[in-house]
Amino acid sequence: NQASVVANTLIPINTALTLVMMRSEVVTPVGIPAEDIPRLVSMTVNRAVPLGTTLMPDMVKGYA
């Protein structure tokens, strides 16, 4: 099973992502692959992402 990116904290809308905000976890449904974490750093989220939420491609500006 592939690990996905999961919010390690509440990420407010329009926040630039940092490494400490994200962790990898095997979850269903599958979200952004964990190997993309380095690429996500400094990208911003377009909605509030609660703790434990899987990051989906449409949640990160410029990812999809």
Rank of each mutant, 00 (worst) to 15 (best):
P57Y: 07
I11D: 01
D36L: 12
T53M: 15
N8V: 10
E25A: 13
N14P: 00
P38G: 11
P12F: 05
P12A: 09
L51Y: 15
N8F: 04
L10F: 13
L10A: 14
K61C: 15
A3S: 13
A7I: 04
N46Y: 06
P12R: 10
R23V: 12
E35Q: 06
A16E: 13
G52N: 14
E25K: 05
I13S: 11
E35F: 06
V49R: 03
T9L: 11
N46P: 03
A64L: 11
V6K: 03
R39D: 04
A34I: 08
V45L: 11
P38N: 11
A7H: 01
M22H: 00
N1P: 15
D36R: 10
S24D: 08
T44S: 13
S42W: 07
V5S: 04
A34L: 04
I11A: 01
A48M: 11
T54W: 02
L51N: 13
I37Q: 05
G62K: 07
V41R: 05
M21Q: 08
T28C: 15
I11R: 00
L40G: 00
N14K: 07
L55I: 15
M56C: 08
I11K: 00
S42Q: 11
T28K: 04
P38I: 09
Y63E: 03
L51P: 13
E35S: 10
A3V: 08
A16M: 12
V30L: 09
L17T: 00
T9N: 10
V6Y: 00
A3P: 09
D36M: 12
V60L: 06
N1E: 15
N1F: 10
V5N: 01
P12G: 07
V27F: 02
A7F: 02
V20N: 10
L17D: 02
L55F: 08
L10W: 12
A48V: 15
A48S: 14
A34P: 07
G31I: 01
A34R: 05
P33A: 10
V27W: 03
I37D: 00
M59K: 01
S24N: 08
R47D: 06
M43G: 04
A7S: 09
T44Q: 15
I32L: 08
K61D: 15
L10H: 14
